[in-house]
């Protein structure tokens, strides 16, 4: 467990959007999908997922609906709305810019300054 990275603040929403963008999921499914697409490298406490989900629903980025899961249990499924899709694109671009900037800053050697 110690090799998992702590989430940066604000990145959970991005991960949820990304996970749901691959197809409608219920809460536990979102968690599994994040684990799957991140190679289980991130430490997310399971319950912490839900405030994020509710926040995204309230912002109109996700649309919830009740349904039946593959385990034959009642579950609430989330899918991306048009606004959510747009937000995911923007946030992804932002993130990439940030990562590039931080990475280049960190990779600078002292003689290059």
């Amino acid at each position: 467990m110690t090799d998992q990275a702590q989430l940066l603040p604000g990145t959970l929403d991005l991960l949820i959007l990304r996970a749901v963008s691959l197809g409608p999921l219920h809460g536990y499914g979102v968690l599994l999908r994040i684990g799957q697409i991140s190679g289980n490298a991130l430490l997310i406490e399971q319950g912490a997922l839900y405030p994020g989900l509710f926040r995204l629903v309230r912002q109109g980025l996700l649309k919830p609906s009740w349904g039946t899961s593959e385990n034959n249990r009642r579950a609430k499924f989330y899918e991306l709305t048009a606004a959510g899709r747009k937000r995911l694109r923007e946030e992804t671009a932002n993130w990439n810019r940030l990562v590039t900037a931080i990475a280049s800053a960190l990779s600078v050697q002292s003689e290059e300054v």
Binding site: E45, Y50, F54, R55
Partner: peptide, 18 residues
Amino acid sequence: IEFGGHVRYKEESREAAG
């Protein structure tokens, strides 16, 4: 246990829900 603080997350969720 893995889920974590049930009451706390519920509270936070409610707050997030508006």
